[in-house]
Design a protein around this nucleic acid. Structure first.
Length: 428
RNA sequence: GGCGCGGUGGCCGAGUGGUUAGGCAGAGGCCUGCAAAGCCUCGUACAGCGGUUCGAAUCCGCUCCGCGCCUCCA
C-alpha cells in the first residue's frame, strides 16, 4: 500500500504486512461539541486502520484530546465554571458523539493534561540542547537553531513573520513550549520555570512518543494543522533527536459554507446534530464519496445525496439472502492501496450492488462501518399486523382501505412493498 | 504578497496517453389496482489559449477562477 506523504509531496510505500504501522492523529480541542469537520480525521483514520488490519497489518492508533488551551479557558469563564470541568464535559461529549459513528475506537486516546511530566521532560531536553530557552516564566523554541524548520509546510523560514508577537521572544518566529500561568487561568502545573501549562504543539510531540515511541510510521490530522502545528511538532521532536513520524497524512477540509444551513446553525453543524438529522450512515457515505485529501462540501444537498445512497444500499438487502460468491477483494484493494481512494471504492460498492454480488457488497460495507445497511431490520409486530391487514384488503380489492393502511405503516416509519410472496417492510 | 492544492456533464465525484467510471437528480419505457423497489434506454463532460504527440481530460507552458495555510482552526 502507498500513501501520500505531505513531507515529501509524493506517494510512498508503507512497510509490508504485518508492519507494524503506528499512527498518531491530532484529535480535537474540547471546549464544545465537536462539529462534523472534526469528525473527518477521526473517520478517515479509523477507516485506514480497518483497512490495514484487514490486510494483515499490526496497527496501533493513537488519537489525542487537547484538553487545556485558551479556548477552553475562555469558554469556561463565559460559563462561570472551572475550565477542567468544562474540558471534562466536552471530552465526554466527544467520546459519546464519535462512538455513535460505530467505527470502533483508537487504541489510545490520551489527554494533554495526563501527559504533563512527559511534556516537561521533553522541554527540558530541548533547553539542554539549546533549542529552547526560558524567558519570563515561558519557554520558547528557538526556530533559528533548527535548520530543517519549514520543511513540512514548504515555507522558507526567512519569509516567516511572527507567530504570536511577544517581547519575551528572541525571534518573532519562535513559539511557546510552556506558558506561564496568567491571572484568569485556573488550571496550571508546576515546572522548573514556574507554574504554567504546555503550549499547543509540545503536547503532541510528548503524547506521540509516550504511546508510540520515538519513531512511528504515520502522523495524521487536518490539512489546516500542517502549519504551524505539525511543523512545530516536527521541529520539537526531530530537534530532540527523535526520528518522529516517517509519513505525514493530511485530510482535506469539510466545508460548511452552504447557504441554508449556515443561517439557522451559524455555519457550524455539530456532529451531534448531523447524527440526529441524517444518521450515521449518511455522514459516513458523504465522506466515503470523496478522496480523503479533497475538500468536501457539507451542504444540505450533498448530505441528502448521501442519504439517498443509504437507501439504495439498504434496499438491495431487503428480503435477500446474502450471496455466497467469492469476495472481489482485489478490486477494492486496487483502490484503497493507492493512497486510500475511498471515492473509487464507493464506485466499486455500487458496481457490486448492481451486479448482485451481495457477499462482496456486505463485506465492503462492513469494512467502512456500514454493515448495518446489509442487515435488514425486522419490523415490529404492530407494523407487520398492519401489513397483513393491507394484504387481505388488497386481496378483497378494497384499495381505499389498502392505501389507508399503507399510510398508517408510513406513519410508523416503514415502507411497504408488494412482492410476489406478499409484502416487504423497509425502514424509512 | 509567500507556500500548497484544485478547476470533469444539472449536482457530487473517479480517471496520469488511445476502451462506458460511479452516484444523485431528470426524461422515456417494462412491471404495478396505485405505489415503492428493481430492470432497460437517453444526456456524449473534461476552465481558456498555445505546445508535445499518430492520438491528451490525462504530459509541458501561459492566462483566468476557486480553495487551504501563512496570529493555537480537524
Amino acid at each position: 500500500m502507498q500513501l501520500y506523504n505531505s513531507l515529501t509531496r509524493r506517494k510512498e510505500p508503507l512497510p509490508e504486512p504485518p508492519g507494524p504501522i503506528r499512527i498518531y492523529v491530532c484529535g480535537p480541542t474540547v471546549y464544545q461539541r465537536i462539529h462534523v469537520g472534526n469528525a473527518r480525521p477521526y473517520v478517515v483514520f479509523l477507516w485506514l486502520r480497518r483497512w490495514l488490519e484487514a490486510g494483515g497489518y499490526d496497527v496501533a492508533l493513537v488519537e489525542n484530546v487537547t484538553d487545556v488551551n485558551d479556548k477552553i479557558y475562555d469558554a469556561a469563564r463565559a460559563e462561570g465554571i472551572p475550565s477542567a470541568e468544562l474540558a471534562a464535559r466536552a471530552t465526554r461529549w466527544y467520546f459519546e458523539d464519535t462512538e455513535e459513528l460505530g467505527l470502533g475506537r483508537p487504541d489510545v486516546e490520551p489527554l494533554a493534561t495526563e501527559t504533563i511530566p512527559e511534556i516537561v521532560a521533553l522541554i527540558e531536553e530541548l533547553v539542554d540542547r539549546r533549542l529552547a530557552y526560558a524567558s519570563g516564566g515561558d519557554v520558547y523554541f528557538r526556530v533559528a537553531a533548527f535548520p530543517e524548520y519549514g520543511s513540512l509546510s514548504g515555507a522558507n523560514p526567512d519569509d516567516m513573520v511572527a507567530q504570536e508577537p511577544s517581547d519575551l521572544k528572541e525571534d518573532p518566529r519562535d513559539f511557546a513550549l510552556w506558558k506561564a500561568t496568567k491571572p484568569h487561568e485556573d488550571t496550571s502545573w508546576s515546572s522548573p520555570w514556574g507554574d504554567g501549562r504546555p503550549g499547543w504543539h509540545i503536547e503532541c510531540s510528548a503524547m506521540a512518543e509516550k504511546h508510540l515511541g520515538p519513531q512511528f510510521e504515520i502522523h495524521g490530522g487536518g490539512l489546516d494543522l500542517r502549519f504551524p502545528h505539525h511543523e512545530n511538532e516536527l521541529a520539537q521532536s526531530r530537534g530532540a533527536g527523535r526520528e518522529f513520524a516517517r509519513l505525514w497524512a493530511h485530510n482535506g477540509m469539510l466545508e460548511l459554507a452552504s447557504e441554508k444551513m449556515s443561517k439557522s446553525l451559524g455555519n457550524i453543524v455539530s456532529l451531534r446534530d448531523a447524527l440526529d438529522r441524517w444518521g450515521r450512515e449518511a455522514i459516513l457515505l458523504l465522506l466515503l464519496g470523496a478522496h480523503y485529501r479533497s475538500p468536501v462540501e457539507f451542504s444540505e444537498r450533498a448530505i441528502e445525496q448521501a442519504r439517498a445512497q443509504v437507501e439504495t444500499f439498504r434496499d438491495h438487502f431487503v428480503g435477500l439472502e446474502h450471496g455466497a460468491e467469492v469476495v472481489e477483494r482485489e478490486r477494492l484493494a486496487e483502490a484503497l492501496d493507492d493512497d486510500f481512494n475511498t471515492a473509487d471504492a464507493l464506485a466499486l460498492l455500487h458496481d457490486w450492488r448492481s451486479r448482485g454480488l451481495s457477499a462482496s457488497l456486505a463485506w465492503g460495507l462492513e469494512l467502512f462501518g456500514l454493515g448495518s445497511l446489509g442487515r435488514a431490520s425486522e419490523a415490529p409486530d404492530e407494523v407487520k399486523e398492519l401489513a397483513e391487514r393491507r394484504l387481505r384488503a388488497r386481496a378483497e380489492r378494497e384499495f381505499g382501505e389498502a392505501d389507508r393502511l399503507r399510510h398508517e405503516i408510513e406513519q410508523a416509519g416503514w415502507q411497504v412493498r408488494d412482492v410476489a410472496e406478499g409484502f416487504q417492510l423497509v425502514p424509512r
